[in-house]
Amino acid sequence: MLIIPIKEGENIDRALKRYKRKFDRTGTKRQLQSRKQFLKPSVANRAQKQKAQYIQRLRDLENI
């Protein structure tokens, strides 16, 4: 549970902005989306390898 202390005389918009920023940084949204549907470990590993290959390909093209 995220707790955002509101200071005396602070604007509610500013507090909401701090809440949204903290929510994004903690990774809560990604965690909720990943728990929504089960993903087999083999599929997750394959996706991770494909992502690593893609990033490596981009870095190789950058160095050329």
Rank of each mutant, 00 (worst) to 15 (best):
M1C: 03
L2C: 02
L2Y: 03
L2I: 12
I4M: 01
I4F: 00
I4W: 01
P5Q: 00
P5G: 01
I6C: 00
I6A: 01
I6S: 02
I6K: 05
I6Y: 03
K7G: 11
E8M: 06
E8K: 15
G9S: 08
G9R: 15
E10V: 01
N11L: 10
I12H: 07
D13E: 14
R14T: 15
R14V: 13
A15K: 02
A15D: 01
L16W: 06
L16C: 08
L16Y: 07
L16S: 05
K17G: 04
K17Q: 10
R18A: 02
R18Q: 05
Y19I: 02
Y19N: 03
Y19T: 01
K20H: 14
K20Y: 14
K20V: 10
R21D: 13
R21V: 08
R21I: 08
R25Q: 15
T26I: 11
T26H: 07
G27C: 00
T28Q: 14
T28D: 00
K29Q: 10
R30C: 01
L32W: 06
L32N: 00
L32S: 02
L32R: 09
Q33F: 12
R35W: 09
R35I: 05
K36T: 06
Q37I: 08
Q37L: 10
F38N: 11
F38H: 14
L39G: 04
K40G: 08
P41M: 01
P41G: 01
P41K: 06
S42P: 03
V43Q: 09
V43Y: 08
V43D: 07
V43K: 15
A44C: 01
N45C: 09
N45S: 14
R46E: 14
R46M: 09
R46P: 03
R46W: 15
R46K: 15
A47K: 11
A47L: 12
A47G: 09
Q48A: 13
Q48N: 14
Q50N: 15
K51P: 02
A52D: 06
A52V: 02
A52K: 12
Q53Y: 15
Y54A: 04
Y54W: 12
Y54V: 01
I55V: 10
I55H: 03
Q56E: 12
Q56P: 00
R57P: 04
R57Q: 10
R57M: 07
R57F: 13
R59Y: 07
R59K: 11
D60Y: 05
D60I: 05
D60R: 15
D60V: 06
D60Q: 15
E62K: 14
N63H: 07
N63P: 00
N63Q: 11
N63K: 12
